[in-house]
């Protein structure tokens, strides 16, 4: 009996090892095309421009990608549940100006930061409630809150930027260690934490389960509203943190600072192997996606490509990434 259970354990262990190997192999394969593309771009730009592969420039790229990367963490959770969060960009603006207004009116920085995060959590909560209880499609619900949040930040500021950010705060946004700006380190910390949650916890499993088959997840006893509301709140909180970091970084809070950022985070997740049909995607892949976009825009800029053409290029990259991914998936099924 003991021998038998020992054998079962050994089998399970072997399977576990195979599973781990297969998983890591697959995650590499999944993001490999994008990773290869990223490396190719880095090599190309390094050759084409003497300014590209320098520590100053890497500092710029990482500074550039930090806010989008944090949004992407939230967007990845949302997209894995087969949803979408269009309100991210507006939350950047709203939480940015609210925390800036509090800071400049003499409140302690930590109070301002918490207030900004609370606003992001609130928008996420509203998104989640609209989607689960009012049964609105995520696209419509977050389109509406996007507009409301943007309007709200214009109302509280009268459309004017908020200046005179405390120096201790804006220093955090601009300084760093070596080639790593603090705000990029914050992004890395969040990415790691939420990667662990997504890959190793029940919460992460439930996120995939909802996106894979909501009905089946419900029949398995999952509390769908609770899970979805949590996911949209994560996205809201990530957006708020993005907005606060952005305020520190640019030393100003603009009500429309985050316009279109949600499109970048969606693109990053999709480039990184996420599917808008849900149930697929990883934080690692999404981060590579975000980095790819930032590298592309930085490199082309150094080469003197006009910003108009950069937009065109970025669009083409998204198309190519999704097309190749679809193609690969069709072949594997």
């Amino acid at each position: 009996m003991a021998e038998e259970s020992g054998k079962v354990n050994a089998n399970a262990q072997r399977e576990e090892d195979q599973g781990r190997l297969w998983r890591s192999l697959r995650s590499v394969l999944n993001s490999s095309l994008v990773a290869v593309a990223l490396i190719a771009l880095v090599i190309y730009f390094s050759i084409a421009s003497p300014y590209f592969f320098t520590s100053t420039n890497w500092y710029h790229i990482l500074q550039d990608v930090a806010v989008v990367a944090i949004l992407t963490v939230g967007q990845a959770y949302v997209i894995i549940t087969a949803g979408i969060d269009l309100s991210q960009g507006s939350v950047i603006g709203l939480s940015g100006v609210v925390s800036a207004l509090l800071m400049t009116s003499g409140h302690p920085i930590w109070v301002a930061v918490i207030a900004g995060i609370a606003i992001g959590a609130l928008v996420g909560l509203i998104n989640g409630v609209l989607i689960t209880f009012a049964k609105l499609p995520p696209f419509i619900a977050t389109l509406a809150t996007m507009s409301v949040a943007e309007g709200a930040s214009l109302i509280v500021t009268g459309g004017e930027p908020v200046f005179n950010i405390p120096a201790s705060f804006s220093n955090f946004g601009q300084l760093g260690i070596g080639i790593f700006p603090y705000i990029a380190l914050v992004a890395v910390v969040f990415a790691v934490v939420f990667h662990v949650i997504l890959a190793y916890t029940r919460f992460g499993r439930f996120t995939y389960a909802i996106g894979s088959n909501k009905l089946s997840a419900r029949l398995s006893g999952l509390n769908i509203p609770r899970q979805l509301i949590s996911v949209y709140m994560i996205s809201g909180i990530m957006s708020a943190i993005g907005g606060i970091l952005m305020t520190a970084w640019v030393n100003t809070a603009m009500p429309t600072a985050g316009s279109n950022y949600e499109l970048n985070s969606i693109a990053a997740v999709v480039i990184g192997g996420g599917s808008l049909f849900g149930g697929e995607g990883t934080i690692l892949g999404s981060m590579i996606g975000a980095l790819l976009m930032a590298t592309l825009s930085n490199g082309t800029q150094l080469l003197g490509v006009s910003t108009y053409w950069q937009e065109v290029l970025l669009g083409l990259v998204v198309l190519l990434a999704v097309y190749v991914d679809n193609f690969r998936r069709r072949k594997s099924v």
Partner: peptide
């Protein structure tokens, strides 16, 4: 309850056997 239609109700098709089998226990 084992539902009638495994594709639309019973299973998380793009996830692993493991994720499918343990979901009710996890929830």
């Amino acid at each position: 309850y084992v539902p009638e239609d495994r594709r639309t109700e019973g299973l998380l098709l793009n996830l692993s056997v493991r994720a499918n089998v343990t979901l009710p226990m996890l929830t």
